[in-house]
Simulated assay, not measured.
Amino acid sequence: MSNILAGLFEHHSDYKKLESDLENSGFANSDYVIYLCDNGTSQYLASVTVKDNDQVENARSIFHQNAALKAYLFEGMNVKETNYDTIKKYIDARNRAEIHNSPDVKIKTSSDGMNSEVKF
């Protein structure tokens, strides 16, 4: 069974260039889908069918060259059985499960003198 590499792209990136880069690197027109958002932004998602690690790395490289914010590999999926809502749902689930960096936290160390743990 094939896998899907999905990518979320920058607002300023050009999806037409992504299409030509994918086709020039050996992916057929039927191997990828580009999901354009109609919410007024030019941000978009793309998914590519990949069969082995070489194709995964090739597609990741193309995604990176075309300003992908992040790429996600979904195993056991096929482009024909996915749509925008399905891909978005899986990406949202992955993001919720991912451990994000926390903001800088200042830890107060003990100092000479009284502190809040002193009991009277």
Rank of each mutant, 00 (worst) to 15 (best):
N29D: 13
H11Q: 06
E19V: 07
E81G: 12
S20M: 04
E23C: 09
L69F: 06
Y72C: 05
F63T: 02
T41P: 03
G76K: 05
Q55L: 07
A93H: 10
S102P: 04
H11R: 10
Q65K: 13
G7T: 00
S116V: 10
A97W: 02
N101A: 15
L45M: 12
H64M: 05
D38G: 09
V56T: 11
A46Q: 06
N29T: 14
G113I: 09
N83T: 04
K16L: 11
T109H: 13
L5K: 00
L18R: 01
A6N: 07
V33S: 14
E19F: 04
Y90K: 15
G76D: 12
I107M: 12
G7Q: 02
S111H: 10
H11I: 10
K89P: 01
Q65Y: 06
G40K: 10
H12L: 11
F63L: 01
L5W: 01
D104L: 15
I99V: 14
T82I: 15
Q43M: 08
R96V: 03
D31P: 01
K108N: 07
I87F: 02
K108W: 02
N24W: 00
M1C: 03
L36D: 09
Y32N: 03
I4A: 02
K17E: 06
V56C: 05
T41Q: 08
N66A: 03
S25K: 06
V50R: 00
F120Y: 14
D38Y: 14
E98I: 09
N78T: 15
A97D: 11
S47G: 10
L45P: 00
T109Y: 11
A93F: 10
S20H: 08
S61A: 07
S61L: 08
I99D: 11
S20I: 08
M1K: 09
T82A: 13
G7C: 01
N53P: 00
K89F: 09
E23M: 15
V50L: 04
I87E: 01
S20A: 05
E57N: 12
E75F: 04
A93D: 14
F27Y: 11
Y15P: 10
G40W: 09
I99Y: 03
D54G: 11
K119T: 15
N39S: 05
A67C: 06
S13H: 06
K51C: 03
T49E: 11
K16T: 08
Y35K: 03
S42N: 13
K17G: 01
F74P: 05
D54C: 03
I4G: 02
E10G: 08
L18V: 08
L69N: 12
N101E: 15
N39H: 08
K89H: 13
N29R: 15
H11S: 05
K16P: 00
T86L: 15
